[in-house]
Design a protein around this nucleic acid. Sequence first.
DNA 1: CAGTGAGGTTCGGTATTGCCGAACACGCCT
DNA 2: AGGCGTGTTCGGCAATACCGAACCTCACTG
Lengths: 249, 249
Amino acid sequence: MGETIQSVERAAAILRLLASGPRQLGVAELARALGLPKGTLHGILRTLVRVGFVEQDQATGKYRLGATLLHLGSSYLDVNELRTRAINWADALAGRSRESAWIGTLHEGHVLVIHHVFRPDDSMQTLQVGTYLPTHASALGKVLLAWDPYGEAVATPLQPHTKKTIVDPGQLETELELVRTRGWAAEMEELTEGEVAIAAPIKDSRGIVVGAIGIRGAVERLAPEGHLHMEFVSYVRDAARAITRDLAR
Amino acid sequence: MGETIQSVERAAAILRLLASGPRQLGVAELARALGLPKGTLHGILRTLVRVGFVEQDQATGKYRLGATLLHLGSSYLDVNELRTRAINWADALAGRSRESAWIGTLHEGHVLVIHHVFRPDDSMQTLQVGTYLPTHASALGKVLLAWDPYGEAVATPLQPHTKKTIVDPGQLETELELVRTRGWAAEMEELTEGEVAIAAPIKDSRGIVVGAIGIRGAVERLAPEGHLHMEFVSYVRDAARAITRDLAR
DNA sequence: CAGTGAGGTTCGGTATTGCCGAACACGCCT
DNA sequence: AGGCGTGTTCGGCAATACCGAACCTCACTG
């Protein structure tokens, strides 16, 4: 691959930094983080403000992400073919299982949530579309890792989220092997205590895994006494197969 | 304001074009639309692909928005102070009114939806966060226009969405005058047949209107026989006042 | 209350940077 | 085969956008 445009890459780096935390950042902070002169950054920031990608705090002069990005992000969802094709099946899955349904893709070492249906009859939930889940501690992530065509190395060390999170790379690999042979993944309180998830792969017309769909809910409903109710597994696998079939056309 | 960086502005223009429709665009199309040579655009596109803002279709070579933007957009939501402060009140509003609750801001001549709570006990709804509503045909929009500090001209001609949409600028102005005097806005089947909305302004510590909150639902529930149930209006105004009070601190 | 340092901003010279346009390679349809 | 439509490459030219030092303002402090 050839050369890339410096200023655009720098602009992207700024946006990524601003997105990495909820804090607003100043020119000086950015300059330190990126190792660039303040003047240079100021020029890029001025441009980003003009196009609405960044907003400047009137009081402090610090910078934060801008509203245009929200609109661009939601436009991405319209463009994303997997999501538009899968959205109805996710609704159906949530309805049948009476649990929240999720669709995710592999993106920069994380699971990017591209769709999320709330659990029926349960309002107070916040939408997770656009957020990241850890690959090694989520059912969606295990599926995506298991069939990752590029075999990306998992970011080590594996961050623990609960006592049950898999933190040993070797153990993760055997888990992925299991996922590959039986065709679906489970995650038992490895991300949040009391929550369990199931996921299965979505393949495109060439047979490559392009995403995963699954459900997530309380351990007492999905896996009482530590044993998964297999009916939930078949709901998830049915949905995954249906979407895969849809994508083939 | 001083100069801006050419390539970054061009990159932003490309992203806006890609976001403007669900279609994928090719280098040649972009070149025509922006009046730039193909080679120039290719360089910018290559960079945008590298940073994940744009993806290229393997088969056709055409370009579409990338997944990184989805993540940046959702990060914006974390940063947005109005939203983080208002989110609980919106939940409460949806609960009390048993209708869907909405929060929006003025952005480039549209209402940008920054939060959306589904109507309780009603799953099959799609989330609208990040989408645009028309200013002249939504309750949120009327509120934002009525107190717009910059007095931005509304994009004319006013696009009709139903038979009841206000399309005459003069009539819109008298409507906005009404909104200003009584302190809230209504929209009766002006955007979608059978749907009605109510909204009220959210002000920051300086008294400037920074957003609007409202509800939206079926005409038969909110306004049977064409008359708004005033209890819904007070729910909305209560929520708006509560958030305004919150922001003052 | 000066003094200091940190913040964001401005500015002009320099040479680096990334523009440009023509040529290339491929695929499709005529 | 031919022509047109893609997306892509390349090298030379000069416009471009970097850089670093100087500027201004604020807030905190000795």
